[in-house]
């Protein structure tokens, strides 16, 4: 007897919970052959603002976790992904096509991306910080710290790897994020929220919105409680306006990358969302 398939309801992921849009809106997502797959929650301004509140509340616990712990949590995301690889291969294949081998490769690279950044958690500060030989009786140390709440516009494709390549480097230093997933292919990212929900990352540290980036991103760009905005997937939006809007609160802005090498792993992506704090300590025998 054949089993009748139960379709999944794809929701937003805000403050560690799966919610429909408060607006009650949804939009249709289609597969590579333009066949209907799901009605996905269409996030509103209010959802975006709720996500920012959650991200701000999570900042002290995530940035305050030890570097070793953050590394282990990111590694655990890779572990759980590994166990669910077949699901993600199927979702990528359904959304993007391109053959099973490519979808499998994308999942492999996504897993390796989380592992690569997990390993940086307790090392990037050593590479990016240093003592400074100042004149006078002072011990002077420059250290890196996370910038705060970061808003990310994820690339459209590759849907899963692009998401991980944009979010992992922001997360590793202790930032908390509000991500707008790929509008045409949101399902892999929304399924990844199930991985995040069981990964020991504090609730609210990653918030995932599906919907229209052109509609939601202006609210995030102008939001006073966001410290930085990563426009990696905003190449076909009016990102100059987003950057201008972000200027009102002097957010750090990383514009879309010129060569569109979305899946590259780099230390510079981590450091783009960190601040340098320099502390002067007096030295004295008395």
């Amino acid at each position: 007897m054949s089993h009748m398939m139960i379709p999944k309801t794809y929701k937003l992921y805000i403050n560690g919970t799966f919610v429909r849009s408060e607006s009650g809106r949804s939009y249709q997502v289609f597969d590579k052959n333009h066949v209907f797959v799901a009605n996905v929650a269409m996030a509103s301004r209010k959802d975006a603002r709720d996500a920012v509140v959650a991200a701000r509340s999570a900042f002290s616990s995530w940035s305050g976790a030890s570097a070793y712990n953050r590394g282990q949590v990111l590694y655990r995301i890779a572990e759980i992904l590994e166990g669910r690889r077949e699901q993600f291969i199927a979702e990528i294949l359904q959304a993007e096509g391109g053959g099973r081998a490519n979808a499998a490769l994308q999942v492999n690279e996504t897993i390796d991306t989380w592992v690569w950044y997990a390993g940086w958690a307790d090392k990037y500060a050593q590479v990016a910080g240093n003592t400074n030989p100042v004149t006078g009786p002072y011990f002077n140390l420059s250290v890196t710290e996370p910038t705060g709440v970061v808003s990310v516009i994820a690339p459209k494709r590759p849907s899963l790897l692009g998401f991980a390549s944009a979010v992992a480097p922001v997360l590793v230093s202790g930032n908390t994020v509000v991500v707008i997933a790929s509008q045409p292919h949101p399902l892999p990212a929304l399924s990844l929220s199930e991985v995040l929900a069981t990964s020991d990352i504090p609730k609210g540290a990653v918030n995932i919105l599906s919907g229209n980036p052109a509609e939601i991103s202006p609210w995030l760009a102008s939001h006073a409680d966001i410290n930085a905005i990563y426009l990696i997937g905003a190449g076909d939006l009016n990102w100059a306006d987003l950057q201008a809007s972000a200027a009102e609160t002097l957010k750090r802005v990383v514009p879309p990358e010129a060569d569109n090498d979305i899946a590259s792993r780099s230390l510079e992506r981590i450091l783009a969302f960190t601040e340098i704090k320099t502390v002067w300590h007096t030295k004295s025998l008395s």
């Binding site: 490519n102 590759p158 010129a258 060569d259 780099s266 230390l267």
Partner: peptide
């Protein structure tokens, strides 16, 4: 800026975003 042409330099060879990543890899 970094010596590589991109804003961010490529640290390792990985999946490109083209339609056929396997071939490119």
């Amino acid at each position: 800026k970094s010596g590589a042409p991109a804003t961010f330099k490529r640290s390792e060879k990985q999946v490109p975003t083209s339609a056929s990543p396997v071939k490119a890899i």
